[in-house]
Design a protein around this nucleic acid. Sequence first.
DNA 1: AATGGAATTGAAAGCGCTTTGAATATCATG
DNA 2: CATGATATTCAAAGCGCTTTCAATTCCATT
Lengths: 349, 349
Amino acid sequence: MNLRELALQLGLSQTTVSRALNGYPEVSEATRKRVRDAADKFSYRPNTRAKGLATGRSMAVGHVIPVSDQHEMVNPIFADVIAGAGEAYAEAGYDLVLSLVGARDEAAFYRDLASRGTIDGIIVHGPRHNDPRLPLLKEIGLPFLVHGRSSLADVSYSWVDVNNRSAFYRAAGLLLDLGHRRIGLINGLAGMDFAVRREDGYRRALTERGIHVDPDLIAEGEMTEAHGWASAREMLSMPDPPTAFLVSSIISAFGVRRAAAEQDIALGSELSVVVFDDDLSYFRSDGGVPQFTSVRSSVREAGRMAAEMLLDIIREGSDEPRQRLLEAELTIGRSTGPVPTHEGSKTTG
Amino acid sequence: MNLRELALQLGLSQTTVSRALNGYPEVSEATRKRVRDAADKFSYRPNTRAKGLATGRSMAVGHVIPVSDQHEMVNPIFADVIAGAGEAYAEAGYDLVLSLVGARDEAAFYRDLASRGTIDGIIVHGPRHNDPRLPLLKEIGLPFLVHGRSSLADVSYSWVDVNNRSAFYRAAGLLLDLGHRRIGLINGLAGMDFAVRREDGYRRALTERGIHVDPDLIAEGEMTEAHGWASAREMLSMPDPPTAFLVSSIISAFGVRRAAAEQDIALGSELSVVVFDDDLSYFRSDGGVPQFTSVRSSVREAGRMAAEMLLDIIREGSDEPRQRLLEAELTIGRSTGPVPTHEGSKTTG
DNA sequence: AATGGAATTGAAAGCGCTTTGAATATCATG
DNA sequence: CATGATATTCAAAGCGCTTTCAATTCCATT
């Protein structure tokens, strides 16, 4: 059933039927009702493509997930970000077009997407420190919004981000207050903007208290369980091991917990851990004192905001950038405690 | 730059240009080259919507992720499934339209998707035991393929699935061979088809060896870390606790590991664990003897297969169903061992 | 009854592409 | 040199919608 057939059924012109369904004012309430009822009865849905062709809008938003050519990994946080964004799209009647693209051919891909007119706007995921995608998108002229930020990129653009620097500054501060002086940082992939900012916050907190930043206590990598495990294991076997860790992801934190368990080191007393918690649904602690002390910010909420802001931008057509900085919430869990005294220290093995 | 303008530039008709670019044979090689070069030069990309309107195909595939109304959770395995599928689409020039839909209004949603013509086919995720979506989609007439299966659904349909029953049958068999008699099953959400099949396999293995299936040793729920932890904790505090667990997800297995650690129970010796490992990229053990003994099957590979099969179905237009059953790989890791003898048992707390 | 404005409705063009059916150019052949 | 086959090219219709501009209807006024 298409518009022509429906109009025929009703003995009306396509014009009137179209107007009635799209809520134009110049159609009488009587006919509008008649049209709506008929549309319901025949369960008529306007063809997306035809509508898009006529209006010039596609009513779709693109999400581009960068896939690092080396590891080909997909970070599970994207699932939650997209779930949040999806809610916004569903409410607004937009579709979500998802693409996973290797960094190699990203530029061409964005140009394609824009000139084929598949989408009306785009959400950029996983921005790197000085991300070439932003000037590119600016040049292409496609409305976009970044989940995260890209320092050094000297273009103005819209973004939603959590205050990573302050989150790690505060988290480090907490550990310092507890007396920790050797604090390991198990961070995300070098070059990712969030990782750079987190390290910044960590460094600032230490430096402000006159503590030397030991490069051996900083690990970077894809935030897998194995990465957390390997990094913690290595640092814990140093002659002067850290008494605390700052971990960029709850998934890596599981690995840290495993490393600690293997060496019979008790979390919370012998070793403190603060994690950055994206509040992923599958890793939420339900009720009670949480497992891990954390700086938490729901990535799903961020996804929702990002989508809503992008839709605003698309609708208003204005190009003045919008930005939203979220503050993470510092929650004390069971994984932190005062630095262990020397007599309390134990032999490993 | 659109087709008309390009044709104008070339002094050719739209017809010829269109044919040249789409590889029709009735265009001379000389003009084809001329057209291709010009298209390159002006970086012309045909408008998706116009093309779709003209051809009747949208060159897009839908993925519908069911969001349970109660928990609003998004399983991280979807990220990997979709990554796999995404590869296939990228190669074939298809777009991927992602929707997250609450079970409540799913029927309406599918009908919409079909009649609006947004997509040419659909991948069904997370099928339940007797999933109403399958007959519905059959009725609608939209090509679809299920990742997983739905027993009892008395329609024939295409699917890609891992042999869950055999995987758990074998996993349970392994534990039984090791002398375990009290084996806990920490399964996925009741009603999900995979969970039903896994329980089947577990039951069959036990029953065949004349072992009573204790309903108290079966836990079901969303496969979170917390679920694994809570279920293991509860079972381990039973008067006659299990000496081994079969766990439906590596994420829940982390929770099991936590519960064991809390009670100072050593994995592999005092407690055995076999997990179903979807080979998620963020939870892969890299090299060496894996953490967990597992039955493993890459969900990403499955996603890729699902996409490829659906594209075949769409292209061929035949409606005879295709099916692909994958066998999981049983890999011995460090989490399993012979059942502990009684003298070796320890006091808890 | 004639008039003009407001309220409704409709015909037709256009969005950018594919594809049918017709037209033209090219060429080997008798 | 005409002829028919073959290789190329093109004009125009059509995909299903929106939207401009024009037409019609309806009323309150004069």
